[in-house]
Simulated assay, not measured.
Amino acid sequence: MPVDTAWSRPWSRCDEAENCKPSSSPYSAKYALTTTNKVLDVYGSNGVRGYNIGCSYQKTVDASSISVKAHSNHHHFIVNSFHGHAHNRCCQLQFHPLYQHGLGLEDLEMCECICSASNAIAPVIHHTSYFHWLQFINLHFQQWDSDWYLELSKFLYNNYKQALAIIDDLSPAIKELKLALNILDEDFEHWNMEEFEFLETLTEETDEYVEVMTFVEALQSLAKAE
């Protein structure tokens, strides 16, 4: 994993955003690091993991005992799609799935779906003994695994159809806009890099931007008043 360029290394100011702050506990990352180590053993190189604080967790891995292992396997950490929108813009430009190659429609939010589904057993186990608490959770996830295994082919097929539909529907419009605006595919990535560099060097708001925001806020107030 390259770490010698400003674009590829973790954003040095990311800890300034509340959603990008790692825990202050020196032991809180041990479970995540153990999981990462296991993922590297099972899946090998060129992997990507989504994590709510994947931006700051990258630094944790870099400072850990598995740093060399993670880097040699070119393992990359990013932020889940839903949680990523709560991070600051510089963080999003580097770590949000929207700007990553190879993820396609994947939003990296499967754990949210799993946790949401498991809420259904909460009323059942709320007043049970510890044994029955574990028993019902185990039964729930056994059924979950069985159901999803049966639906796996359909899930992949529907995702494939959705991807093809998006390509078929949007490609003509994008091609038309590219011709009308005289832009190339490379320009999209270049704009992201320009935005990142601009935000990195922005130390304070200029008078021009303050005036623009004031004007927009005035328009919003006018719209509400009408």
Rank of each mutant, 00 (worst) to 15 (best):
A225D: 08
S28D: 09
Q92R: 15
I167P: 02
T201F: 06
K178M: 15
A29I: 00
C91W: 06
C55I: 04
H140S: 06
K175E: 06
F141H: 03
N80P: 03
T201H: 09
N88A: 15
E226P: 05
A70M: 08
L181Q: 12
L103W: 01
H85D: 09
E109L: 04
Y51N: 07
P123G: 09
N73T: 00
S12F: 10
N19A: 11
V3K: 08
S67P: 00
K175S: 08
H96F: 03
P172T: 01
H74A: 10
Q135K: 07
Q162A: 08
K161C: 12
P10R: 01
N52Q: 03
E211P: 05
H83T: 00
S118W: 02
Y57K: 01
I174P: 01
G50R: 05
E151F: 08
A225S: 14
A86C: 09
E151Q: 13
M110W: 04
K161F: 06
E208A: 13
G84H: 06
K69P: 00
K59D: 02
H85E: 04
Y130R: 13
D147R: 08
A70E: 00
N19H: 14
D185P: 00
K224W: 07
Y157K: 13
T34D: 11
A163N: 04
A163Y: 07
P123K: 06
A32I: 01
A86W: 06
A63H: 01
C113R: 10
V216P: 04
E176V: 02
P10E: 00
V124M: 07
I66E: 07
Y157M: 12
V210L: 14
L177M: 05
D107S: 05
Q100G: 01
E16Y: 15
L202Q: 15
N80A: 11
N19K: 14
P2E: 12
G84F: 07
G102R: 05
